[in-house]
Write a protein that binds this DNA or RNA. Sequence first.
RNA 1: GGGCGAAUAGCUCAGUGGUAGAGCGCCUGUCUUACAAACAGGUGGCCGGGGGUUCAAAUCCCUCUUCGCCCACCA
Length: 893
Amino acid sequence: MELPTRYEPQATEEAIYKTWLDADCFRSTPDDRPAYCITVPPPNVTGALHLGHALNHTIMDALGRRKRMLGFNTLVLPGTDHAGIATQSVVERQIAGEGISRHDLGREKFVERVWQWKGEYGDRIVRQLQRLGCGYDWHRLRFTMDEPYVDAILTVFERLYDQGYIYLGKRIVNWCPFHRTAISDIEVEHTDENGSLYHIRYPFTDGSGSVTVATTRPETMLGDTAVAVNPGDARYSGLIGKTLALPLVGREIPLIADDFAQPEFGTGAVKVTPAHDPNDFECGLRHDLPQIIVIGEDGAMTEAAGAAYAGLDRDEARKRVLADLEAQGFLVKTEAHAKTVGRCDRCKTVIEPLLSEQWFCRMAGTPMVEKAIADARDERVRFVPGRYRDIYLRWMENLRDWPISRQLWWGHRMPLWRMTDGDPKAQESYVCARDRAQAEAKLGSADVVQVDDVLDTWFSSALWPFATLGWPSESEETKRDLAYYYPTDALFTAQEILYLWVARMIMTGEEFMGDKPFDDVYIHATILDEKGARMSKSAGNGVDPVDLIELYGADATRFALAREAGQRQDIRVKPIREGRQEQVEQARNFANKIWNASRFALMNLEGYEPPAADAPTPTALADRWILSRLDAAAEAVNAGMDSYNLDDAARALYEFFWDDFCDWYIEAAKPRFQGEEAAQAKHVLWFTLERTLRLLHPIMPYITEAIWQNLPGAKERAGVDHLMFAAYPEKGIAARDPRAEADWALVQEVTRAIRTLRAENNLKGAGEAFFAPSDDAARATAGANADIIAFLARAQPLTFAAGPEDGFLAPTRFGDVRVPRPEVSAEEVAQERARIEKDIAKIDKDLAGLNVRLENPQFVASAPAPVVEKARAQASELNEKRAKLEERLKQIG
RNA sequence: GGGCGAAUAGCUCAGUGGUAGAGCGCCUGUCUUACAAACAGGUGGCCGGGGGUUCAAAUCCCUCUUCGCCCACCA
């Protein structure tokens, strides 16, 4: 077997993936097996895969692969998202580099450019997922702008519209002046910033004094249509109803009473700008106030702001207004004031609350929302970790209507039409129609126009679990797929899109499929940098998974992520420094260990034919022990995978493979391959390796496949061509053997004692060692394994006797170990004495602790008997050990 | 302003009532016929602070501090 001593993933992984594709391993069609279906969160077509994706897909692929091996018909259905605002932003930035804006190009040309972008970058994501090893059914790859998918969107829209859920509303929305579109609350990012609170004096028109208001946004005063005070505020009790003259503008506005003005804030008087603040808007409705829009869609002041300010950017306008107020004596004072500022989560532009006409979808109280709440409350949809259920419920129970129209160009244009001369601000003008012909028929006119707006990108992603499976097609294939795969089994995502996406999928699933979209929602950790900060392109602290894969291979990258992917809220990932990344490097070392252990096994199993009876039933201790450990590992790995604790599974595999299988079993097996135990040792080696490869495969698919393909008899015994189709080992694949585990502990402890004595005393080469077992059981176990202990400890031979009086001594639980002492210098004697004294000091410390407990009558009375027994046993062991060490001290003088 | 998570060896993390573990790092040896990306041995921690419950607390409760995440229309 010609295998290099180092595992080189770069040389093999891509070729292996190709064999899987060529054999069409990942295709899923309904059959007699139970289904396991995941529709993957579609990455945006904005660019490349980031580490969060890598984690997300590692988890899904690992769990999907394991289910396939457990006999489920696994469908992991991939796709990409057109990602309206995000992709439009990217392309706008791109053309900005050419010195043009989307408005220079015009809608049609611009959308062409975005399609071009999608063509280039959509495939790139797919290639990167394949490089990561994802076993997805690429025949079913979906894109949110594919024709059948668009059909689903139109169908959903039509139904919601016909039921009266979709309406045109005039509201304050979050307006992004950069994108020139409305966005929803959850697309606004809040940051705490240092600002100022400005106190401005508004004089009464009758010259009887003034009222001072406090505001953080002085520029909006140009649109004020009232000042409000709390009706219970004694300071203003006689003044309500009087008229104020708005400084700079001169407009006469009333002083009104409204509960939303809080006496304790500022001066207790608040300026009311109904067109630019949600609270003021509500207040304006209550008092029937005019709504004056002074900031336009581009973030600049409008004509209504007055000639002096029109055309100024809002920041510039603020400065000008303040200067003018100051000059005219209206600015009373300015104080520092921390405030939260809303920014567009895509471009970080400060959001302008703006009064505008938008399309909304009704939420609160609708059956789909009620059902989506009930699904979580009754745990028909299970959240993992469970705490996210409460977070979800709290949000769902306070839902506001969903603004679904966006003033973007890249997206699904809303299927709403009106006659050209119809009132665009009246809902009655509109009909819902899929195309011009239908619109003309419905409106009874050929002179029709479609609304310019596109749908919120999350409107389309909300349909993902069923639209990707073909809904609303009535074809036999679709009906079969939906019946078989829906509801899907689990959804895997990060917490940031719990509301944006998860909640809405549950609602639409209930509304249009009459059932939840998935059983489980697993919210995995968010990737943070080493200091705990969010990774972002602008901060430059990102780690590119493609770099990690190129450095260390996909298996190592996957293992490193899986090993930390538990129920935690975040995972810290260090940067790549000087071409190294610690966490993935450790995983790469593990892969290399797997490679080399397997290489050793393959060398010893050349030409080997595993017996027909798959599972060995050996008699030798080492064999019984490793099989028992294998079974324990299988149990732990399955438990971890079943409970979304991939980290536990990864750790169990790591520890079993490295500590048990490599460090002890393989080492112990070396001499046995020559002796009379060779047959059973080889069988156990083959079996343990083969089953371990199966256990590892979901997390490290490439290296395990590479080895398995070379393992003699593996394919024949499993009856399949690829490891991914072999049965996944579960608890019970081998005999649990507590006796063997207890006996092996002796082998380990005696071995370690000899090793330590030899290492600490600088004894080179193989030498003698003595073991005086404390009882017959220890003698029997050690006797049967003397050769192995001697081999492992590089001690030759192991003699069952007290050994020479002047030998180095190590008391163990099973008896005394001695290693003969050659000529030593006074210095070396001093070193040995120091070590023994240190050991005794440690024993004394432990004994003191134990005695405190044992001498406490309450401990003896209250603690469970086994605990007391254990403490007594420990104390007596330590006393014994101490006595022996003391004796040894006297010996060396 | 609410909600949540985290704080354990220099670093990254395990450890949910019985006197602390792993990997990396560091120190000593070793090219022992799978692996120096390795092997053997060792060093290293009043488990963030304070209180409480208990015979017994890293672990359960309260509180404080620090860091982070999510949510939030107080000018």
